[in-house]
């Protein structure tokens, strides 16, 4: 009897999944209260929260330069950019919360080291030029990753990404303008720009994810429109569009093997140090510990503030009730 039941359950589940997959294939959106396979829910919680964590951890390396920005114009632009990242984190956490997990639970995952975020933010920002390089390269790579997500299958994620992409359009320009100004400046400034490119180039390439043969989620992600192109395709696209931008700046991309291939119409490039990538992913980057502890401190030290506001709200609500009686 029991076996038969599970058989039936399984069949029913199978047909629900078929309907679900067909819906996505027809480009229909999935909304939070719709039926979805558990795996879809889990994958989305993982990916959206990783994305949200990356936004708010990403505030830290750039935030590091707000107080030292070299002009008032640069200071307000950087401040607005880092603020946008807080906003983007917020949109993404909200999208994630529609899947039945709270922001606090997601924070716990980040603070305990259980959740991942983009490894690039574990590299230090050492000079002002790094702020330019991050805007140009890191936001550049992020845009390539993000634009296709505006039409991903999960409605709240897609809507958050539309807002994010719209707002982020100034971020990369901001970075490139900083690089441009440096490259038109003194030798010291040019050197600063080159040094930043040297340090951020490879991490930016790694940001587009492991190579296709190492990537575990690609096929499923393609089906659910969490991905439209493979990591390697995205990486090639990034290189093809970024190298000419480096040429305009008069900077040299730090890759001896980089060469335009007239046959393929793409740039050939050198070997990426994946050993370094996995080290940083595993928590051994220069700033992994600082980044997590900065986030955790902000949250822990804010607890009494959040509690105070709630206690006040409760008291006010009580007062209103009493006044009404």
């Amino acid at each position: 009897m029991k076996n038969q039941d599970t058989m039936q359950d399984k069949e029913q589940m199978k047909s629900l999944e078929d309907i679900f997959e067909a819906k996505i294939a027809r480009d229909e959106k999935i909304e939070p209260k719709d039926w979805m396979p558990e795996k879809y829910r889990k994958t989305h919680i993982r990916q959206i929260s990783q994305h949200a964590h990356s936004e708010i951890v990403g505030m830290l390396p750039e935030g590091n330069w707000i107080s030292r920005a070299p002009s008032l114009r640069r200071k307000v632009a950087l401040l607005a950019k880092v603020q946008d990242e807080a906003g983007h984190g917020l949109y993404l956490y909200s999208a994630c919360e529609t899947l039945g997990i709270s922001r606090e639970e997601l924070y716990d995952q980040l603070h305990s080291g259980k959740a991942k975020y983009s490894s690039i933010f574990n590299y230090p920002t050492l000079t002002w030029a790094d702020i330019g390089a991050i805007g140009w390269l890191v936001d550049g790579a992020a845009i390539i990753n993000q634009v296709p997500l505006c039409s991903t299958s999960f409605g709240p994620y897609a809507r958050a990404m539309v807002r994010v992409c719209k707002e982020e359009s100034f971020h990369q320009r901001q970075g490139y303008e900083i690089m441009m100004t440096l490259c038109n400046g003194t030798q010291e400034q040019k050197d600063m720009a080159q040094d930043a490119l040297d340090r951020w180039w490879w991490p930016a390439l790694m940001m587009l994810g492991p190579t296709d043969d190492e990537s575990t989620h690609t096929e499923q992600s393609m089906k659910w429109k969490l991905k439209r192109k493979t990591n390697d395709e995205l990486r090639q696209q990034f290189i093809d569009q970024t190298v000419p931008q480096a040429d305009i700046l008069g900077l040299k991309v730090p890759d001896e093997d980089l060469q335009y291939n007239t046959e393929t119409g793409h740039y050939d490039f050198g070997e990426i140090d994946w050993e370094e990538f996995w080290q940083v992913v595993k928590g051994h980057g220069m700033c992994n510990k600082e980044r997590i502890s900065a986030r955790k401190n902000a949250w822990d030290e804010g607890e009494w503030v959040r509690d105070a506001a709630l206690a006040y709200a409760d008291k006010q609500a009580d007062k209103e009730v009493k006044e009404a009686v």
Partner: peptide, 30 residues
């Protein structure tokens, strides 16, 4: 006390003449 700020839904009217539209959500104590 281990309570968290509740979630709120935000509706914004972009300009007069248009309806309020759902923009997203956020957390707030009241």
């Amino acid at each position: 006390m281990k309570k968290n700020w509740p979630l709120w839904e935000v509706f914004v009217r972009s300009k007069n003449g248009l309806e309020h539209r759902h923009f997203g959500s956020l957390h707030a104590p009241d």
